[in-house]
């Protein structure tokens, strides 16, 4: 298709979609409206289950199946990335060279690493109470480990990153979510039922299974993101095709 034809089709299509969408917007209840039937029910249900953060209650209790699907998407795409970015027959690994890091950068990164790690763990742990949770905290934990790459070099990162272990942790997070959900079955509950005591409102142990599912997500996300980034870093730093390598030696 020529560029000109494509632009015509695009313009017509875009115009049509814009008209359709704007007409729909005119019929929408105006921004900031007060009618939220499902939302109001969700707030009541969360309070009844002693979960202070309603969003966590929705994610890990009321609509926990969505989160299982979401977790599986993450799991599947981490696995997919591992498969897609594998080292192929025409590629070799190159030892990354030790890098020289400015002392100020190193000091900052080495200081920031434990702080970020702790923040991440805190965010995971308080998911049912305050904003945050397994997903947000997991990403922060995974990112914090990569500060080591900035502070020292790629080899230091590789030393604290036994990838096999992280892959197992990733799978364990996924399996744990399924198992906690299934543990409700013998107790006579439906799948993913909140069968544990709900605990005292606004404490770490409140919300029944919410903290457990939250922790499972935290483990999976942290491990999954580490594996994901490792694959990209591998490609960018270590894996070279044979012709690249020949060129590098020349």
């Amino acid at each position: 298709m020529t560029m000109r034809l494509r632009m015509w089709v695009l313009a017509l299509g875009g115009l049509g979609v814009a008209v359709l969408y704007v007409l729909a917007c005119l019929d929408l209840p105006s921004f900031g409206g007060h009618r939220h039937p499902y939302g109001d029910r969700a707030v009541r249900a969360a309070l009844a289950r002693h979960t202070a953060n309603t969003i966590s209650s929705v994610n890990f209790d009321q609509r926990a199946l969505d989160t299982l699907g979401e977790e599986s998407i993450l799991f599947g795409s981490v696995l997919g990335t591992v498969v897609l970015l594998r080292q192929t027959r025409d590629e070799d690994r190159q030892q990354p060279e030790p890098a020289r890091v400015a002392p100020s950068v190193r000091r900052y990164a080495l200081f920031a690493l434990p702080v970020t790690l702790l923040i991440g763990l805190y965010i995971v742990a308080h998911g049912q109470l305050s904003p945050g949770g397994g997903f947000q905290g997991g990403v922060v934990v995974a990112t914090s480990l990569h500060l080591l790459y900035i502070a020292v070099d790629y080899r230091a990162l590789e030393r604290i990153r036994p990838l096999g272990l992280y892959e197992v942790a990733d799978a364990a997070g996924e399996a744990a979510y399924v198992l906690v959900g299934a543990a409700a079955l013998p107790a006579g509950w439906a799948f993913l039922g909140n069968f544990l005591p709900y605990g005292t409102f606004n404490t770490l142990a409140s919300g029944g299974t919410v903290p457990l599912l939250n922790a499972a997500i935290g483990v999976e996300v942290a491990a999954g993101v580490v594996v994901l980034l490792a694959r990209f870093l591998d490609q960018a730093v270590e894996i070279v095709s044979t012709d690249e390598e020949a060129e590098g030696r020349a």
Binding site: H34, H36, G39, T54, I55, S57, V58, N59, R63, D66
Partner: peptide, 9 residues
């Protein structure tokens, strides 16, 4: 009053 938690989830 609180905003809708569902859409946030």
């Amino acid at each position: 009053p609180v905003v809708d938690p569902i859409v946030q989830a």
